[in-house]
Each structure stands twice: as C-alpha cells, then as structure tokens.
C-alpha cells in the first residue's frame, strides 16, 4: 500500500471526522435546548429540513468566495450535510421518553439536571446514535466532493481518474470510499446496539 494512498485515506478520515465531530458539537446541544421550546424547536426542525434539500455541491460552490479553496469550505458543506439527521434524531429521541417516566423522575426528587443526565438523555441516546450513524455514512461518502475544490481525500482518485480516463484509479477511489463508509456503519451500528435499553 503506497504512502500516497494512506495519505489520501488519512485526509479523507480527517475531513469526515472533523465534520462529524463539529456537527455533533453543534447539533446535540442545540436540539437538546430546543426540544421543550415550541418556537425554537420549530425553527430548528425547519432549518434541518432546509439543510437536507440543499445539494452539497451547491454549498461548496457558495462557500468558495467566502472560504476560498480547500479544507474549510469542504468542512462547512459536510457539517451542513451531517446536521439534519443529528438534529432530528436528538429531537425525536428526547421527545420519545414517556411523560410518565419523567413525571416519576420528578416525583422521586431528582433535580432537572439529574432528570436530564440520569433519565432523559440515557433513554434518548439509542435514537441519537441512529442519527450519528446516518450522518457518519453520509459525510464519509460525500467527503469525496471535497476533491472538486482541492479539499483532498479519496475523492482525488475519483476526480483524477475521471479527468484522465484512468479507470483503475477511479475504481480505487470509489471502492475505498465505499469500504470506509461500510466500516463506519458497522462500527457505529455495534455501538448503537450496545446503547439500546
């Protein structure tokens, strides 16, 4: 395995991984704060719906004049892509916790914080995990697009292979991305089953 290939895998994982971590850091607290507030929640879910229909390539193109070429616009596009499943699943997970369970928690004398950390979030977590898994797979697959604006990663092989009509190079890129996505899906699927009640 050439050093070049390993560098490309590394760049791809770094890009997708940063996008996912950033989307988690933004999406989970945001959805958590909005879950019980009708207006912010409505706005947030509308935003998630909006993000979902914008093509990643369009965001890349729009980000170009602002953020230039390379890693940063690619990261932005991928965060936008990863946010909807994280926002929606966090919201669904938190709101699916039965009222009776929360009422019982309040009745036992838990503080609001304890209800959150001991009851509500642990019960929401398996559903949140499904969103993280969806987001991870989408981000790994779409990180390929970064190559169009010099963001690097395995997309370089696909773009390069297309431009020079080099089929083996193109296939190498495509298969590697697919393998990476499947690997992440399997790993997160395992984690998700461990979390299930």
């Amino acid at each position: 395995m050439s050093a070049d290939f390993i560098a490309h895998v590394g760049a791809h994982v770094a890009l997708a991984g940063s996008a996912l971590v950033l989307a988690l850091a933004i999406g989970i607290p945001l959805a958590g704060m909005a879950a019980d507030r009708p207006l912010p929640r409505g706005l947030l879910l509308a935003l998630a719906g909006g993000f979902r229909v914008i093509p990643s390539l369009a965001i890349l193109t729009l980000a170009l004049p602002l953020l230039g070429l390379g890693f940063r616009p690619a990261l932005l596009a991928l965060v936008v892509l990863a946010l909807p499943p994280i926002l929606v699943n966090t919201d669904v997970g938190l709101r699916a916790v039965p009222r009776a369970t929360l009422e019982a928690a309040r009745g036992t004398g838990m503080t609001e914080r304890q209800i959150g950390t001991r009851v509500r979030w642990p019960l929401a977590l398996p559903v949140v995990a499904v969103g993280v898994r969806t987001a991870a797979v989408e981000v790994i697959a779409s990180a390929t697009l970064a190559a169009f604006i010099g963001g690097g990663g395995l997309g370089d092989y696909i773009v390069g292979g297309l431009q020079t009509a080099n089929l083996p190079e193109l296939v190498l890129g495509a298969v590697s991305v697919a393998a990476l996505a499947l690997l992440a899906d399997a790993a997160l699927g395992y984690a998700q089953r461990r979390l299930a009640v």
Binding site: P98, A100, T101, E103, A104, A105, G107, R118, V119, L123
Partner: peptide
C-alpha cells in the same frame, strides 16, 4: 402513579 414510570 398509574403508569408506574419505572426507569426502563
């Protein structure tokens, strides 16, 4: 309570 509300 009627719904019991045990923590699952």
């Amino acid at each position: 309570i009627q719904a019991v509300g045990l923590f699952p």
